[in-house]
Every structure is written in structure tokens, then in C-alpha cells.
Design a protein around this nucleic acid. Structure first.
Length: 200
DNA sequence: ATGACGATTTACT
DNA sequence: GTAAATCGTCATA
């Protein structure tokens, strides 16, 4: 599996299982000029869909913006927030089950100079240590919304070295204080001790 | 047509 | 620690 593109089967799981499984895998972004940017996934949040007050699909809310959440597992859900930031999610489970995993941080691997240029930052830990930071570093925007990670050349995920359960830490999700009880659930998973996670 | 609000980041006190 | 930046999207009218 290592080095191979992840399959549909990998993605068609519940968002918590998928979030943990995504840790350690390699996000690959091929730019229009052919350059490849890659990074190891080190932080992911799970959004549980219709029942999850913090999810964009809470209560079955379905709009033009969040339509990608209803796609089959393995598609990209890219959304715009706070008037200036893009965030990248991997859709989990099957078609019509609007759950997803928000990729929150990556450990930069290839194309680091390009990422520094796009971020306007020189410190490696400032390149992809947050959902909007990594979107900027990886040139992710609305053009990738709805992309199929199983078949797209522009964006996909390769098998890396999976992070063992004993090295996965769990914490509350970030920025969802409005979600009442759901903000307290530990649905944010990250590689324990990794320097590239958000919120040092 | 209008108003409120973000699954964030950055800079500043 | 607090707050500004900044605007597409959505709900209401």
C-alpha cells in the first residue's frame, strides 16, 4: 500500500475511523506546471454529519456551498471561510452520507520552496500547521472542490507510514464553540509530539 | 436587497 | 490574552 494511491475502499468508512487512518498518509498536489507538492498528514478532525452540530451538514442542511459533502467517500470538500481562507476536507463514508475529515496540518515533504513562496513564510513549521495555511501552501481553492481523490491528478493521497494508535492523540475540535455539547467531543486527532500540528 | 456569520490567521496589548 | 481582517454564502424579507 505504501506509495500507492489510496482506493475508494479506504475512504468509505465512518469519519472517525477515516480520520485516524489518514494520519501518516501523503497528500499529493500536482500544480498546473507539473510540480508536485507533498506532505504527511499529521492532524485531522472528524465531522459526523447530520447529527453533528459542528458540521456544515448538521440537520441535513444542504446548500450549494456544502454540496460536496454528499459525494462518495474519497472526494474533496473545499470551502471558503472568514472572507479569506480555504479549507480542505476528505469526504468520508458513502454517497449521500454527508460526513468528512478536515485536514488540519501536514508535515511538508516535497516542494518546500514553493510552499514558502506561496505562504510568504520561511519557517517550515509555519507552512502547513493549520487548515488554511496548508490550503495556501498547496494552492488549494474552489477549483479542487468536488475533485475525486481516487482519479484526480491535481490532488490525491498516497499511502504513507500509518501512525500507530498509541501515537495518536485526541483533543477537542478547534473553532466550534458554538456547537454546544459537540464542541467538547474529542474528534480532533493528531500525531503526538509532531512539530507541525496546529496550535503548538 | 440586506444583514449576520463563520470548521482561521495574524498582529498586537 | 484580545481583536481585526475580509467577503462569499445563506436566511430573511
Amino acid at each position: 500500500m505504501t506509495g500507492e494511491r489510496l482506493t475508494r475502499r479506504f475512504y468509505r468508512r465512518d469519519p472517525v475511523t477515516l480520520a485516524k487512518a489518514l494520519l501518516g498518509q501523503i497528500l499529493v498536489r500536482r500544480l498546473d506546471d507539473g510540480q508536485e507538492l507533498t506532505g504527511r498528514i499529521v492532524e485531522v478532525e472528524a465531522y459526523l454529519g447530520v447529527k453533528d452540530r459542528a458540521a456544515h451538514s448538521y440537520g441535513g442542511r444542504r446548500t450549494k456551498r456544502n454540496a460536496s459533502m454528499w459525494l462518495d467517500g474519497g472526494h474533496a470538500y473545499v470551502y471558503f471561510v472568514y472572507g479569506m481562507h480555504w479549507c480542505f476536507n476528505v469526504v468520508s463514508d458513502r454517497e449521500d452520507v454527508p460526513t468528512a475529515c478536515l485536514i488540519r496540518a501536514l508535515e511538508p515533504l516535497e516542494g518546500i520552496e514553493e510552499m514558502k513562496r506561496r505562504r510568504g513564510q520561511d519557517r517550515e513549521t509555519e507552512l502547513c500547521s493549520g487548515p488554511a495555511k496548508l490550503a495556501q501552501a498547496f494552492a488549494i481553492d474552489r477549483a479542487l472542490n468536488g475533485a475525486d481523490l481516487v482519479s484526480s491528478d491535481a490532488v490525491n493521497i498516497r499511502g504513507g507510514r500509518r501512525i500507530d494508535a498509541s501515537n495518536i492523540a485526541a483533543a477537542r475540535r478547534v473553532g466550534v464553540d458554538y456547537a454546544e455539547g459537540w464542541s467538547k467531543r474529542r474528534l480532533r486527532f493528531f500525531a503526538a509530539g509532531n512539530r507541525h500540528v496546529s496550535r503548538l
